[in-house]
Simulated scan of single mutants.
Amino acid sequence: MARFFLPAVLFALFSGGAHAHVKWFSEPTAAVSDAGFTHSEIIAALLLLLILLAVARWLNAQVAKRGAAHCAPWFHDTKPLGYAFLLLSIYFLGCAFSGFILAPHVAATKGVTALCIGLQATVSILLLLNRAQMFMAGLISSLFVVASVADVTFLLEYVLLLGLAWLVYSTQRIPNEPTMMILRSALGISLVGLALTEKLLQPELAMNVLQQYPLNFMAHLGVPFSDKWFVLAAGMVELLIGLLLMLGWLVRTTILVLLALMIASNSYFLMVENHALALMEFIGHLPVFAAGILLLCYSSTVTRNARELALQSRSAITTEQRLSAESGH
């Protein structure tokens, strides 16, 4: 139960709307006053982040000590991969029908957009058929390059798509451990990038969204929690989750919390009956859900180094016990 403590606290504190993509919903509004963070707020947030990382590292080591059964992948068949490909197919088809390139905020010329719509529809069909994997991976990578030229921050925020392109290229039946490490790291980098570009380095973007949509549930509960603090908290939680995935600590638990946050942010738009934004949020988050399914089912819950240390520790204890028993006889 200890390994669920840290993510559960994060979910309880910062769930609703924290992971809605700011650039998808931010509309030009009046300038937000007092949007920047003070030095004391930044220092306090960084200290808390370091403490939580230290706790996560300790919990990760405790999980590793419980044995290989708690660290091994959950699935050894192709069903989760098929579900992930289905979600990705819906994502690319949704992007094509919506008329944008991989993300709602990416803008390009009409000719480039039309070409990319066709390419996205092609990727969607190939994913359903599970054919021409090298060609598919090339198309996804090409779309990523086009989107990155249109928006340079896309390079950092959507590295996950490159991880998924590698997965498509390299996996025939069951993803191997290096592929899962690449996918996990790519998802972590994307979350860190989004935390920095949409919240921590440009808090005014997120605060504009809060002016348009009452996502700050803490204020509605009567807690004196300003929109600026909410943005800082959401950004730090996203940063923490990204770092945990990059480090390979508490992978499954972290993924479960991440998916719960995604569902919470999407549920908000359904509750306020803004179905267009709910659909946009759903389509945009499908690559994260696909990666989450794969990491839950095929990835180890802790890093290889932690497992090796735990195995070495148990081996040393077993050897010591055997020698002690022999000396007793």
Rank of each mutant, 00 (worst) to 15 (best):
V63M: 05
G222A: 06
H70Y: 14
T122C: 11
A233G: 06
M218S: 07
G111F: 13
I283N: 03
C71Q: 14
G67M: 06
T253D: 11
V9P: 07
T303F: 10
G82F: 00
Y91R: 02
A72I: 07
G118W: 11
R173C: 00
H19C: 00
G82Q: 10
L128R: 08
G17W: 03
M136S: 15
S124D: 09
A121Q: 06
N305I: 13
A150W: 03
F225E: 04
E177A: 15
R57L: 08
V32I: 14
T171C: 09
C71W: 10
S15N: 10
E157L: 01
H76T: 10
A107R: 14
G118V: 08
G292L: 05
V257D: 11
Y169H: 10
L155H: 00
V251F: 04
I255T: 01
A219R: 14
M1Y: 08
F144H: 10
L126P: 01
I42E: 09
W74T: 10
T122G: 06
L261E: 11
R314P: 03
S170M: 04
L259F: 04
G82N: 05
T38P: 04
F154A: 04
F5K: 07
T78P: 01
T318C: 11
F144E: 02
A234V: 01
A278M: 07
Y83T: 06
A8S: 15
L247W: 13
G111D: 11
A260F: 07
R3M: 01
A56G: 01
I90Y: 00
L323G: 09
L102I: 09
V146R: 03
W24L: 09
A219F: 04
R322M: 12
A84D: 02
W229N: 13
H220W: 13
H19Q: 12
A316Y: 09
F11K: 02
G118M: 08
L13T: 03
L162N: 06
F75K: 15
G17I: 00
E157G: 01
L259C: 04
G222N: 05
L286Y: 03
L194P: 00
V288H: 14
V149M: 11
R304M: 14
N216A: 05
D227W: 03
L323T: 08
K228W: 07
H39Q: 12
E326L: 15
A12Y: 12
A310Q: 08
L88R: 02
